[in-house]
Amino acid sequence: MKIVRIVLQLLVLYGFLLIGEAIQTLLNLPMPGSIIGFLLLFSALLLKIYPLEWIDAGATFLLSFLSLYFIPATVGVVDYGPLFSGKGVLLLPIVIISTLITMAAAGFASQSIANRSAAQKEES
């Protein structure tokens, strides 16, 4: 009964979310409860407290439609038309340039450090 397993595992994911949100409220943390839930699930998997087989099917199913869940939010742009007809249109080049800076920094840092440690291994 694959469908039952998926539904049960979705409930487990929802449980991790609720725990994450409870921790966020309780400790008044400035980060989303879902990220706390993510960290809890990842730790539970790493520490072998929770086996992969008990979450794999549900998580894979949920993530295969990931882009569906944020469409209602992107539709919200309908309320921000005037913003982009004025000065707000400058936000677009800002996002584009900042994205390229991010990519350059991340790609350059990871590649140069990977190359350096590979070179060190060859020397020793």
């Binding site: 929802y14 409860g33 993510f38 960290l39 990842f42 979450i55 869940y69």
Partner: peptide, 25 residues
């Protein structure tokens, strides 16, 4: 619209939690 949109968006939170699975793999 969001009276219905909220139902779809409700899956966002669990989906973020689910990202732990591909990272673990």
């Amino acid at each position: 619209y969001m009276e219905g949109g909220d139902w779809v968006a409700a899956f966002l939170g669990p989906a973020v939690v689910a990202l732990a699975v591909p990272l673990y793999k």
